[in-house]
Design a protein around this nucleic acid. Structure first.
Lengths: 142, 142
DNA sequence: AATAAATTTGCAATATTGTTGCAAAACTTA
DNA sequence: TAAGTTTTGCAACAATATTGCAAATTTATT
């Protein structure tokens, strides 16, 4: 398992308290995080602006990727496989649990390729599935 | 082709200027609209709040559906096939053109069903493909 | 058609979310 | 350790979203 330090070094980023803490938060969370989650979980130890800039840096470096949602809050999740700078290959399906609200990266489920009408050239695809996650299902049927 | 009036009546909504105008905007636009687009295209004839509330009502009634994006701007598009109240079946692929920035509903391209890990039960899936749309392609190669 | 009842709108106030410039602080390099 | 570079935090601002409430509009009723 990678440590926050290793990830930062590998990506040639300055090692700062903020980056380490935020990265650790991602490492110990399974599921995606919104900007707001990060602020809460770091006890507002860092300025909002720092969090925004850190997330932006992480996205650019390919450390985390963004997950599209319909609820006006962009989510971020760790890239499991290293992504090249500015070029993510996070083509796995994202699952949003409608019960616990968690967003989970299904790293092993690849986004299928669809046939588009003539004239459309795809460069990237994302897929978001919502429903009940395995954790919530377990709790429901013990 | 449906008129704004018919759609409102069918959904048992009061017929108001705002709802008619906004609905007409959707009918004459191919592609999705963001809240900001609607404000621009109606010359700020309606209060921001009204636009928000109208969109919310339309989503609830199944007249429009939301499209997830990564850039913190929820998009709305007309449901071509009537959707039941609170239950959308807009399971077609959405295409975002990285050139003209338009978002297009590919009504004929259905979101494929993926096999999820054990324990996950899907209820809805969305798929967003980005790339170059047919309009932009035509302009590029005349 | 006129009125009562219900719904919708706009305003004001407020909350939330995201951005920019710049000086101080922290980090890296030599 | 000191110089050079990068990052942070503050302040101010901009954009986006939400809520309560009275006035206006729409619908239902007679």
């Amino acid at each position: 398992m990678d440590t926050s330090l290793e990830i930062l070094k590998r990506n040639r980023l300055s090692i700062t308290e903020g980056r380490k803490k935020i990265l650790e938060l991602f490492l110990e969370t399974d599921g995606a995080l919104a900007h707001a989650d990060i602020e809460k979980n770091t006890d507002a130890a860092f300025d909002r602006v720092t969090v925004y800039r850190t997330l932006q840096t992480f996205v650019e470096k390919g450390i985390v990727h963004q997950i599209p949602t319909t609820d006006n809050a962009v989510l971020y999740a760790l890239c499991k496989h290293d992504c090249a700078q500015g070029h993510h290959h996070d083509n796995h399906v994202h699952f949003i649990c409608s019960h616990c609200q968690k967003t989970i990266c299904l790293d092993d489920v690849t986004v299928p390729i669809v046939k588009l009408p003539t004239g459309f050239t795809p460069t990237q695809s994302a897929m978001i599935v919502s429903g009940i996650c395995n954790d919530c299902k377990k709790k429901a049927t013990p």
